[in-house]
Design a protein around this nucleic acid. Structure first.
Lengths: 192, 192
DNA sequence: GTCTATAGGAAGATAGAC
DNA sequence: GTCTATCTTCCTATAGAC
């Protein structure tokens, strides 16, 4: 924080979003003031309104980017291989992608209630799309354990996303160990 | 909201906590003002300070009660039967207990960051105690799928608590179906 | 036990100078 | 593109009347 003179330019926009992401994740949307975000960037509060029409839009844009990136990145990663290989691949992708974006994930789960109804509907649609990706894979795997596909999908996603709440870099378990453990657990849940 | 005259007495305390619980869950701790809570109860803001020293204590007491009740209720429910029966029993207990307290569960996961360090430590200790309950059961079951017990414990808990995010009373699946599905899934995860 | 009133500050957002 | 200054509203918490 704190810039010395009147420098910067097209850098400020990304800095504002980065600061908002970090502060919203740490303290919560409602608890963070525009003045705090401005201080982190090194500008005065009024300057932020060059980059966002208001605080609510700032939140929505962060969540929208996160969901769009999630869907797009899976499209790139997905090799469209055999069902079981795709399931393993999805588990690995989900865990690692989410661990690399802890702040955005946290915000996307915690701050849904602070979105306007229109913005909420947009985010929810993308979330449903992502859930459908896993559901399709699970159905294609056709394991004996697959009871209700939607219920199983939500159970698996909750399990995977839960990693973000406890995993710490440099802790007792490394990423690869975590991924392999979850790959094995998910296979057993689904019964393949 | 809105009381007509100067009635009530020892009822107000519980009403304050109930209003705070509901509003914190709906809008978030930081987004809710003492005036909103007071309006929901039907008193003026100043009157709340007869029942809590400040807003932070109100939050802490809600979370403390929730965790104490969770641990105490499991103690009552736990029959201490064979390991596998205890596992099933725990799954059923966790899901139903949490579904019945959706607001408190939501707050207890979302508002940890709004606790003072001392208060946070107390809540975390109780959470660790609860995790240990399940870990002990999992170890006693000794299934072939039990890799790292702590990792499996956290995975199962995330899966179970996730029910709260999507289950709706009167929806497509009833409670008993959900419980039985999760009992079956957890057995498979653990490999028993 | 609840009220009114208020202290003292911080919030989101805008206007106009530079 | 950023600043300072400000409008207006809201906040937590307290004091003292009833």
């Amino acid at each position: 924080m704190a810039r010395t003179s009147g420098s910067s330019s097209q850098k400020t926009g990304p800095l504002v979003r980065a600061a908002a992401l970090r502060l919203f994740a740490q303290h919560g949307f409602a608890a963070v003031s525009m003045r705090q975000i401005a201080a982190e960037v090194g500008v005065q509060a009024g300057a932020l309104y060059r980059y966002t029409p208001d605080k609510q839009s700032l939140l929505f844009e962060l969540m929208q980017f996160h969901m769009e990136e999630l869907l797009a990145t899976w499209e790139e990663v997905d090799a469209g291989a055999a069902p079981l290989a795709r399931l393993d691949s999805f588990v690995r992708f989900h865990i690692l992608h989410h661990l690399d974006r802890a702040d955005a994930v946290f915000i996307s789960y915690m701050e849904l209630r602070n979105l306007t109804p229109e913005n909420f509907a947009q985010i929810e649609a993308m979330r449903a799309e992502y859930e459908q990706v896993l559901e399709n894979i699970l159905v294609a795997c056709g394991g004996e354990g697959l009871g209700d596909p939607k219920l199983t999908t939500l159970a698996v996603l909750a399990m995977l996303t839960g990693v973000n709440t406890w995993y710490r870099e440099g802790g007792r378990l490394d990423r690869e160990t975590v991924v392999q453990s979850y790959v094995a657990m998910v296979r057993r849940v689904v019964g393949v």
